[in-house]
Simulated assay, not measured.
Amino acid sequence: MSTAAATPLFACSRCFSRHPFEELSPGEQLCKECRGLFPVVKCTYCRSEFQQASKSNTSSICKKCEANVKLYGKPTACEYCNTIAAFIGNKCQRCANSERKYGPAVTCEQCKQRCAFDRHDDSKKVDGKLLCWLCTQSLKRALARTKQHLSSVDKHKHRGHNHKEKRKSDMMKSKNSGDSLNESQPSEKKSKLNPLQGELDPNSSDHVVAMTQLKETIASLQKKVQQKEMELLSKDKLITELKAQHHNNTTDLRNEMKNKERMNETKFTLMNTKIQNLLKEVATLSKSAKKNNKNTKSLLNNTENSGSGTDSPSTN
């Protein structure tokens, strides 16, 4: 049985053509042709991969997030993973479900954010690390690319080895092996390139994801700063209003006290004037009474004197 016949084949989920498993895309299980016709992209909001329906539809939002946008409007940043996918409350659906199932979030060993959830199962860890969902997907893609690259390097080495053996056989037959060995060395050197070279590519999807996460984190922090600034402005406005109200109340109290003082002074002046008038009236009445008493005494004396003068001649 040949090697090709021994390799199991799997059907593409779109065109149903059969291919080796490593040639199909993860998740959607699509062949290279279908992936070229309908590219796999990451959702702008939840960061999950999905297959575009057609080349004319270049939307970068998955159907689930599109439905949520229609129902709840544009999402905000999740307080755990910082993805712009919190449609209800402050958490995205992925983190909310994980928190409900596995408990509070813990720190991710890769991005150092509190966005991972401990499943208490070592088999769920990636490379022995407790990672969040985004870092898990990124590391899995990196490991898959490294494995694929190493596999291609091994195949290249195997083909190079077979080619080298064939060349040696031909050279021994032609007694010209020295020149042939020198020709085979460049291909062998090329096969010894760094298998992790793809990891340093700044245009790789993981690099783009990391940059997108940083941009989303910065946007989330800027939004929080703006909210804090709005809160401070609101508090400053409230403080200014309270100060103005306090100033107005103090001014009103002072004016009221001054008015009462003026009223009391006016009343005091009126009472003093009335008292002075009454005292003058009393003094006038007292003088008039004394004068009347003096006149009364004088009349009585005169009366008595006139009476005594009338009686004396009659007695003589």
Rank of each mutant, 00 (worst) to 15 (best):
A5R: 00
A6W: 01
A6K: 05
P8R: 08
C15D: 01
F16H: 15
P20E: 05
L24E: 01
S25H: 00
P26N: 01
G27W: 01
Q29M: 05
Q29F: 03
L30A: 03
K32S: 14
V40L: 01
V40Y: 00
Q52D: 01
K55N: 09
S60T: 05
K64V: 07
C65G: 01
V69Q: 03
L71Q: 14
P75R: 00
A77C: 07
Y80C: 06
I84D: 04
A86V: 12
G89Q: 04
K91T: 07
C92M: 06
Q93K: 14
S98D: 09
G103A: 01
R114P: 05
C115A: 11
F117E: 00
K124E: 14
D127V: 06
C132N: 00
T136A: 05
R141Q: 02
H149E: 13
S151A: 13
H156M: 04
K157T: 09
H163Y: 09
K164I: 14
R167V: 13
K168G: 04
S177F: 12
L181V: 12
S184P: 03
K190H: 15
N194V: 07
G198P: 08
E199P: 10
E199D: 13
P202K: 01
N203T: 11
V208L: 14
M211S: 07
T217Q: 11
K223I: 08
K224G: 02
K228G: 04
L233G: 04
S234E: 15
I239K: 13
K243M: 08
H246W: 10
L253Y: 00
R254H: 12
R254V: 04
R254A: 07
N255W: 00
M257K: 05
N259L: 13
K267D: 05
N272A: 07
V282W: 00
K291T: 15
N295W: 07
